[in-house]
Amino acid sequence: MLLWINGPFGGGKTQTAHEIRDRLPGSVICDPEHAGFGLRRMLPPALRGDFQDLASWRQGVVEVLDLALTLHDGVVIAPMTVTDPGHFAETVGRLRELGHDVRHFTLLAERDTVLKRLRERGPGHLLQRAAGKNTGPYRESWAVRQLDHCLARLREPEFAEHLWTDHSTVPRTADRIAVLAGLELRPHTGGPLRTRLRQARVGIRHIRFD
Rank of each mutant, 00 (worst) to 15 (best):
F37N: 03
A174V: 02
R186Q: 15
P171F: 11
G124R: 06
L3E: 13
R21W: 02
D101M: 04
Q128N: 14
G12Q: 04
R194I: 03
L180Y: 01
N6T: 05
L185K: 08
V64I: 14
L24S: 08
T189P: 00
L98I: 03
G136A: 11
G203K: 12
V179N: 01
G191W: 04
F209H: 07
Q128S: 10
T189V: 13
H87L: 00
T91G: 03
E156T: 03
L163C: 07
G11L: 10
H149W: 04
A55W: 10
A160R: 11
A143H: 11
Q15D: 08
M1V: 12
T14H: 04
C150Y: 02
W142V: 09
R196W: 07
L24E: 09
D22C: 01
L69W: 03
D101P: 00
G10Q: 10
H162G: 09
I20A: 10
T195E: 15
G99K: 02
L154M: 15
A131M: 14
S56A: 15
P192G: 06
G182K: 06
P85K: 06
Q199R: 14
V202Q: 10
F209D: 02
P32S: 12
P137R: 09
A143C: 04
V202S: 10
H162A: 11
L147M: 07
E19G: 02
E110I: 01
E90M: 09
L163R: 07
A46S: 14
F105L: 11
D210V: 09
C150V: 00
R119V: 08
G122R: 08
V64L: 14
T195S: 14
R23I: 05
R48A: 11
L39A: 06
G203F: 01
N134Y: 01
I77F: 07
F88E: 13
H206G: 01
T83M: 10
G93L: 08
L126W: 10
L126Q: 14
L43Q: 14
G124L: 07
V114F: 06
H167V: 02
T106V: 08
D210C: 02
D166V: 03
P187G: 09
Q15H: 12
P171A: 13
I20D: 09
R155C: 08
L180A: 15
P79W: 08
P45N: 05
D84F: 04
I204V: 15
L24Y: 11
R145D: 13
A35H: 04
W164Y: 15
L69M: 15
H104A: 13
T189D: 12
L98Y: 05
G38Q: 06
A17W: 04
A130V: 09
I177D: 13
G38K: 00
G93K: 04
A152I: 00
G86N: 12
L147V: 09
V82H: 00
G124Y: 03
V28G: 01
E120V: 00
